[in-house]
Simulated scan of single mutants.
Amino acid sequence: MTTLITKTVSKASVPLIILFSISLLIAGHNSPGGGFIGGVMFAASLSLLYVVFGLDHIKSVLNPDWGKWFGFGLLLSVLTAFGAIFFGYNFFRSSIKFIHLPLVGEIELVSSILFDIGVYFVVIGSLLYIFRKVGDDK
């Protein structure tokens, strides 16, 4: 059984941790971060909810099939890796485009972010699948 303070702090901190994991994902191709550590942060935030509120309560509120998340991420990563071959480049070649937005300025678009997003979903799906299976074991 957890306390009211633990439940309140976890409710407030989980959305912030998820936003931080997304910022790690986005910043990954230019600075430290990326899909792996962003996915670990996301999975850690949801595992905090599993611990604080209990597996049965979280399954009644949030019950996705984490195996499908894993499969989607793996498919996206593989398609990104082989995508360059369809355009006549080497395997895993990354493409960079710069676009100019009127109010924001110049933005760099990198195709490797799709690979990072795939890794993000693979890590989330695999870790939370494992956490849930271990928690279901009675």
Rank of each mutant, 00 (worst) to 15 (best):
K11S: 09
M1F: 12
P15T: 06
D65E: 11
K59T: 09
V52P: 04
I117E: 03
G34I: 10
I18F: 03
V110F: 01
I99H: 02
P32N: 08
F42P: 06
I5Q: 08
I117T: 10
I99D: 09
V51F: 15
L127F: 15
K11G: 01
L62E: 00
N63W: 00
H100G: 02
F87A: 11
F42S: 12
H57A: 15
F42W: 10
L55W: 11
G67R: 15
R132N: 13
M41C: 15
K11I: 14
F36K: 09
I117H: 03
H57I: 15
F42H: 09
H57W: 10
M41N: 08
V78E: 00
V104G: 00
G83Q: 05
I130S: 11
V14N: 04
S77I: 06
F72D: 01
P15I: 05
L4S: 12
V122C: 13
A12N: 05
S95Y: 12
V134W: 09
I113A: 10
H100D: 12
I96A: 09
G39N: 07
S60V: 08
I58N: 03
F121G: 01
F86V: 14
V40W: 04
G39I: 08
G39V: 09
I85S: 03
V122K: 02
W69I: 15
S21M: 08
K97G: 06
L16F: 12
V78R: 02
L19I: 15
R93P: 04
V51I: 15
F131R: 02
F70M: 07
S47C: 12
G67M: 12
Y50Q: 07
H29G: 04
S21T: 09
K138E: 14
M1A: 14
L114Q: 08
G33I: 10
I17D: 11
G135R: 14
F86T: 13
T8H: 03
N30W: 14
L101T: 11
M1G: 14
S126G: 07
A84Q: 10
G83P: 03
I117D: 03
F72W: 14
N90P: 07
H29R: 05
W66Q: 07
K68L: 13
V78M: 10
V119C: 03
I5W: 08
L74W: 00
R93D: 14
H100Q: 12
F20P: 00
L4C: 03
I26A: 06
F92V: 10
T2K: 14
K11N: 05
F82Q: 01
